[in-house]
Each structure stands twice: as C-alpha cells, then as structure tokens.
Design a protein around this nucleic acid. Structure first.
Ligand SMILES: [Mn+2]
Ligand SMILES: [Mn+2]
Ligand SMILES: [Zn+2]
Ligand SMILES: [Zn+2]
Lengths: 145, 145
DNA sequence: TATATATTTGTAATCATTACAAAAACGATA
DNA sequence: TATCGTTTTTGTAATGATTACAAATATATA
C-alpha cells in the first residue's frame, strides 16, 4: 500500500522529472494524503520535516507535476486551488459546511453533447456542492437540543 | 428581445433588491452581453456611461445578485470569476486558445451517482476545456503557410 | 424640509500566486 | 576529488483579484 521512495523516485524519472529530495517528499505527501490538499497544507506538513523548505518550491513542484500530467488542479474553490494525485476521471463534491472534498464516480467519458460538435475537448470537470451526510446529521442533532 | 429598463427594475424589485441606477445598468449589461463577463469587463463598459462608477459597486452588485439567485458565478478560470445571467442548468466550455466561453446543453439533472447517496446536492457545475472550432480552423490555416 | 437608512465611492488591506535573482545542490568531466 | 556549467531551491518583491471599511451621496419617510 505504501509506495516506497524508490518507486516515487522512479515515477518522477519516468516522466522526465529529476527526483530531487523536495519533489519526492511532495509526491510522497500527495500519494499518502489524498484529501485534495492546498499548497498551504502541503507546505505546512512538509516544513516539519524540511525546515529550510520554501513555499515557492511547493508552487514550482505542483506546477511541474501538472505540466507532466502527474497531478490535476481542482478549481472547485473560489479562492485557492486544490490538487489531486488521482488523475483518473471522477467528480468532486465540496461540502459547504465542513469544506471537505469528496470523490465520486461518474461517467465523464460518455458525458457529451451535440452542442460541442467540432470542438476539441481536452478536459472535463464535474463539481458538485452541498452538504455531506455527516454535516447533515450534525445539523439534525443540533435541532433536537 | 431587448428588455426595457422598467422590466429590469421590476425584476430587481421582485427579488427585494432596490433598483438603483447602477444596479439596473449592471443588470442591463448582463442581459445584453451574455458572454459570461468578468467584473472588469462590466466595469470597463459601464464606466463610459457612468463616469463616477466604482469597481466596488460592481463587486457589491454581482455579489448581491448572486445572493438573490439572479446571477451565477462561473469558476472555470483559475484567476478570475465570470458571471452568468442564465441561471438555468447548462455546461460551460472554455477555449484555451481564444479564452471564449461557450454554453452547451447537458442533462445535469440526471447527472447522478450512487456515491453521493446521503449527500444534499445544492449545485452542479460542468466545465469542459479545449479548443473551439474557429481556433482549430485558424491553426489548420496557419499550418498551410 | 429634516432625519434616518441604504447605496455608492475611494482607498486600504488581504491573500493566493507569480516573478526573479541569489544561493545551494547536483552532475559530468578531467 | 576539484572544477565548471546546469538545475533546483530559496527568499523576497511584485501582481492582481477580491474584500473591508469609512466617508460621501442618494433615497425614503415623516
Ligand atoms: Mn479527486
Ligand atoms: Mn452560461
Ligand atoms: Zn461536511
Ligand atoms: Zn477559440
């Protein structure tokens, strides 16, 4: 389950990315924390291990990973970008109460329309917003009081 | 086809929004320019008619309209928000070459998934990116040279 | 008209992201 | 291993969209 540093390093090399210490650590974090983190979350976690780390490095790295199709930016938030190491097709649900982002399966491939005949489609995103079951439950509980 | 100022004013009043001169002008612009404009585009157009206009007023107004479900923010861009006066369900395609945003019909209602059982879904967005037919044509033409 | 309330305006603050140059790390080569 | 050129990292400054806020202005009510 846990991917070794060697595997992570190889994964980067395969894509023509030199496996620096910082890059491996960022990739390791992304693989182990599949919560669609922000740059800040990645930075604040890794600074504990790498005291000299710069936030610029996180920005450089995630942008490099995106260039290489190793990472996908999730634009579901208004103010900051989140990142998804799972680049396979799936939808994202954001709970407007707790802020958590959930994956869900959806047939994006077959999501098509007559109106886009003649368009070249490179990327499809599906974003839902609402309230997650846990937050719905908490609301109900509060009402009881 | 052209909605009168009276109609626009009434539309605002219906929603409990006091129809100030600036608000009517912003709504008029949105109704007549269905290009999913940015705050800057709205401002730069209306400043010609209203020399004292402030960009703050545009921000205030679009946010007020969004609160009242009169306007929908489109988060397809990374850096700035666009606004859509057409609040009916439809998808958005952004051409990565010319930047234009196209509407397309899609059955968002029936866009559903087992994974979100127990979630309350308030909003669904479908964003596609790629190259529009005109830009594809221009590319081909350039290759011929 | 006078007064209270709502709206607009201008400016400052915020904050995520990018730009950029200096410092550090790396890699090849002799 | 020492050297030299290249890549990466780092720190700081700049950018730019959006929000905060208070003063000015407009509007409604009495
Ligand atoms: Mn995901
Ligand atoms: Mn639209
Ligand atoms: Zn929640
Ligand atoms: Zn185009």
């Amino acid at each position: 389950m846990v991917e070794s540093v060697k595997n992570l390093s190889e994964k980067l090399s395969e894509r023509g990315i030199r496996p620096s210490y910082q890059r491996i650590k960022v990739l390791e974090y992304l693989v182990q924390n599949r919560c669609h983190p922000t740059v800040d979350q990645i930075f604040n976690h890794l600074i504990k291990e790498i005291p000299t780390l710069s936030k610029s490095t996180i920005y450089n790295t995630v942008n490099l990973f995106i260039e290489s199709d190793l990472l996908k930016p999730i634009g579901i938030e208004d103010n900051e970008v989140r990142y998804d190491i799972d680049t396979s097709d799936h939808g994202h649900f954001k709970c407007e109460s707790c802020g958590k982002i959930f994956d869900f399966a959806i047939d994006i491939e077959n999501l098509t329309t007559e109106d886009l005949k003649g368009f070249r489609i490179n990327d499809k995103s599906v974003y839902f917003k609402g309230i997650c079951p846990e937050c719905l439950k908490n609301k109900k509980d509060n009402k009881k009081i």
